Every structure is written in structure tokens, then in C-alpha cells.
Amino acid sequence: MEWLPIVAVVVTGLMVGVELSVAFVVNPITDALPDDARILARAHGGRMLGRVMPFWYIGSTLLAAATALVEPDAAALAWTAAGLLVVSVVLSVTLLVPINDRAKQWTPDTAPDDHHEQARRWDDLHLVRLAVIVAAFVLLAIASAR
């Protein structure tokens, strides 16, 4: 099972990388577009990533927990990483997904008047979630290196 911590770090690291790029590359580019294009881009991104990310988050959580089971010397670090990933899932389901579920249906004709505020709220919550998953990734990487 020596491969398991490596897989956990790679899978979780790739997820963190995608979420970093959403926060610091994709959304700033999208936000610079004209309003109609911004609405359509965010809706498309929400649909596309909304299909993949639940599996990625849950998979990363399970891999971190499995790492805790196979790496007894680093179990506390890996369990903490798994716990942080659980926190990220709870944040996602309770706060980010409801906004995303609305936004992915928007068109320039159907977006609500407060769509900018809702997008900003999602971005702010995403940064909180990002901090949580970065911390989990760092702990998981340290646990896997032991």
C-alpha cells in the first residue's frame, strides 16, 4: 500500500491546483468579460466543474483517510487533513453549491439583478474553502513524506 499516499497527494494536489486556478486565473479572466459573456462563462464553468468536483472532493477525503490508516506514524496529520477535507465538503454543500446551482442556470436574460453580488459571495466563500483545502493538502503531503 506504499502507493496509496502518493495517489492521495497527487489527486488532492491536482484538485487544489484546479481550485487555485479558478480563484486566481479563471474567475479574474471571466470577470473582465462583458456582462453577458461573464454570465454565460460562469454558468458554463459551474455546470462543467459541478459535475466533477463532488467526486474529486469526496475521493480526496477518502484517500486522506486511507492514508491515515496505512501510515500509522503520520496518522494524526492524515486524519487532520481528512477532517479539513470534510470541512471543505460541508462548506461546499451548504454554502457554495446553492449559489452555483442558481448561477449555472443563468443566461443574460434570466440572471437576477444581484448576480454580481452572488458571484462575489461565491468567490469569497471559495477563497475560504481554498484555504481549507490548501491546509489539508500540506498536511497530507507531510504525512505522506514520513
Rank of each mutant, 00 (worst) to 15 (best):
H116S: 13
P108I: 07
D124R: 15
V86I: 15
R102E: 12
L91S: 04
V89K: 03
P98E: 11
A111F: 01
V86A: 09
D101V: 08
D109H: 13
N100S: 14
W122E: 01
P98K: 12
R121A: 13
N100Q: 15
R102T: 06
T107K: 11
S88R: 00
D113T: 14
L96W: 03
H116V: 14
L91V: 09
S88A: 15
R120F: 03
D109V: 13
W122S: 01
L96K: 06
D123T: 14
E117T: 10
L130P: 03
Q105F: 03
T107F: 12
V128T: 09
L125K: 02
S88K: 00
E117V: 07
Q118W: 01
D114P: 00
A111M: 04
R102Y: 02
W122T: 01
H126C: 02
S92F: 13
D123Q: 11
N100W: 05
L91F: 10
P112H: 06
A111N: 01
Q105Y: 03
T107D: 09
W122D: 00
V86N: 02
L96M: 14
H126V: 04
L130C: 07
H126F: 06
S88P: 01
Q105L: 14
K104L: 13
D114G: 00
T110D: 05
K104R: 15
V86W: 01
D123L: 06
A119P: 00
L91R: 02
L95R: 14
H115V: 05
T110S: 15
D124P: 00
L91E: 08
R120I: 04
V93Y: 12
R102S: 10
T110R: 10
H115I: 03
I99H: 06
D114T: 00
K104V: 07
D113E: 14
A103N: 04
A111L: 01
L127R: 15
A103F: 00
S88L: 05
T94Q: 09
R102L: 13
R129T: 01
V87K: 05
L130V: 04
E117W: 04
P108M: 08
A103K: 10
V90R: 11
W106I: 02
W122C: 01
D114S: 01
V93G: 07
D124V: 15
V90I: 15
K104W: 02
V89M: 12
I99K: 08
A103Q: 13
L130A: 06
L127K: 15
L96E: 12
H116R: 13
L96S: 11
N100I: 11
A103R: 08
T110K: 09
Q105I: 05
R121L: 14
W122F: 15
A111K: 01
P98F: 10
A111D: 01
N100E: 13
E117Y: 02
K104N: 10
K104H: 08
A119E: 04
A103H: 04
N100G: 09
H115D: 04
L91N: 05
S88G: 10
R129P: 00
E117I: 03
S88Q: 08
R102N: 06
P98Q: 13
V89G: 10
N100L: 13
D101W: 09
Q118A: 10
V97F: 11
V128P: 05
A119G: 06
V128I: 13
N100R: 12
